[in-house]
Design a protein around this nucleic acid. Sequence first.
DNA 1: TTAGATACGTCAATATGGCTGCCCCATCTT
DNA 2: AAGATGGGGCAGCCATATTGACGTATCTAA
Lengths: 169, 169
Amino acid sequence: MAAPSSVSAATTASPLFLREHEVRRGVELLFFGYTRLTRAIDDGLAEHGLGRAHHRALYFIARQPDLTISELLKILAITKQSLGRVLTDLAEKALVETRTGVVDRRQKLLRLTAEGVRFEAQLFDALRTSLASAYAAAGQESVTGFWRVLEGLIPAEDKAMVIALQKDI
Amino acid sequence: MAAPSSVSAATTASPLFLREHEVRRGVELLFFGYTRLTRAIDDGLAEHGLGRAHHRALYFIARQPDLTISELLKILAITKQSLGRVLTDLAEKALVETRTGVVDRRQKLLRLTAEGVRFEAQLFDALRTSLASAYAAAGQESVTGFWRVLEGLIPAEDKAMVIALQKDI
DNA sequence: TTAGATACGTCAATATGGCTGCCCCATCTT
DNA sequence: AAGATGGGGCAGCCATATTGACGTATCTAA
């Protein structure tokens, strides 16, 4: 563990001595924050007969058009089978379409259809409303800290993937 | 990250001006951060043949001994049925015990057994390791911001419950 | 004291979203 | 030509959640 000084300066000694209370607080806020945020879109999904798994796929396809199946598998960290069902549903509802890869014809490039774009945007709006109000209430400095801590939770081997995601918007 | 100008101009910020990128970044970091943190304890749980649902119950009972069933239901926001199965499992494994309420004999007060305390502490240790290193890497100021944003994600009607949880440690 | 509300338990049926193991084909690489 | 890789699919299983209805014990208030 690095950089104990910044921590010891404030409330506690060193990370090793991090008080249980502070860790529990983080665990709980993450639990409530995450679950409440995801609940914000359940109704929108249910209207289309979809669940959260569908949204996760939809979201990352929206974020990175022409994503391949294997890239999406890495992001979601689920099995091919699980993703398969989800993508089948999304294709049947004409929210997602695939085309054969150009550089490698084995690959399938995933994209949202026009309707998929519309739907994802609608769901995203609910997320934006929740997150934006939390950001606004906390202030920009807090938002930066929020990002920083969360980045620290991502294991090194996954970090590149997350950074890459956030590069192109 | 990109130009905060629109946002920093609005530390008091009108959510309407929040850029999509900043919201997507939050959504993604929350997703990866939360899922990676919870994965940290999957192995420990699997050794006992338990899942994440069991851990959530275990965790909140550890946090608030003599919690009643209905209080726990409120916290977890699942149905009585779902919780029932989880608690049955935990009782069978002698990790949780109940006693009849003193002020209200209809209530069941939930507590960890000695073994339950030991087990929860072991799982908590994995969480602490992850979170503590993220805290240390980010610094105390960031941690405060992290908490602040997450608090903003909790709807008003749930906030009292969360605050109450965090009062007594 | 009795009627109704509350706390908890439990039934049956159902949905969702994960998993494993195994096998297939098409395509790329060497 | 051989093997690795990207993708698809089958069968079966498991964990976790849901709804709605109903039962019992206990508390509270008219």
